[in-house]
Design a protein around this nucleic acid. Structure first.
Lengths: 137, 137
DNA sequence: CTATATTTGCAATAAGGTTGCAAGTATTAA
DNA sequence: TTAATACTTGCAACCTTATTGCAAATATAG
């Protein structure tokens, strides 16, 4: 069966044109996508609201996750690790290229542990590295 | 001389009531502040626009820095390291409490280095840890 | 104290995101 | 295959957050 349908079915989501198309974009993207990227790549075939709601649904189901940024943009990327509904395991480093602006998931680079001050209990850590990516070198 | 005035003068900024008040808030805050926090703590004595412009000026001068978040909020915190105009050295870890929601600068916890894939050149790294802070334990 | 440069506040505008609701589509069960 | 049900979509309106131009007000330098 198609990976696309598989993912949607596994998460008990009805299969609709919008969800298929948006999920496909994520499966074919090496990096992160912003809402604007999705609108652009779908030729605005779907309403803004639908895109927002689809993204939110995917986050809720653990299919995609938010990526932290220093500006106020919201980026999403596929959860390639074992994410479940309401429980994300997104512990790889994200890379943002200073030149092309792309955000790339470094699947093989794990977020290192850090020693916190007394009294602090960690539950989750995110790491974003900026610099020049392989393509722009 | 007052630390406040000292910082403003050093950065060649005119000393105004708004800048003094906003900078004071940062000096007295252990963590990060959002635009909304500042409006609240100044009783809206200053126009929203003034607050935005003051924050931008402080960022430009290297007095405060943006903090990465996973949602789309913008947070600012004092640069306690040696930041200069146009050149921030904000390499400590930030902690966001799952309980009280506060963002705290862990001045003493340095962002660790990570080994990147071939072709990637890092320029800057950010790290955000979530969990329970000392006060909420 | 005056002249100049900078900063502020207002109004208008833009960008980004959300909500209610009716119409449309997917799914389920017969 | 079809009908009933549940879910999803698109529209319109709205809200929050952020930005810009400009005139009035304030700070600084001389």
């Amino acid at each position: 069966m198609d990976e696309l349908l598989d993912i949607l079915k596994k998460n008990q989501l009805s299969v609709t044109a919008g969800r298929k198309k948006i999920l496909e974009l994520f499966l074919n993207s090496p990096g992160a996508l912003a809402h604007a990227d999705i609108e652009k790549n779908t030729d605005a075939a779907f309403d803004r609201v639908t895109v927002y709601r689809t993204l939110q649904t995917f986050v809720d189901k653990g299919i995609i996750h938010h990526i932290p940024t220093t500006d106020n943009s919201i980026l999403y990327a596929l959860c390639r690790d074992n994410c479940e509904q309401g429980h994300h395991h997104d512990n790889h480093v994200h890379f943002i290229c200073d030149n092309c602006g792309k955000t790339i998931c470094l699947e093989d680079v794990t977020v290192p542990e850090v020693k916190l001050p007394n009294g602090f209990t960690p539950s989750h850590a995110e790491m974003v590295v900026k610099g020049i990516c392989g393509d722009c070198r």
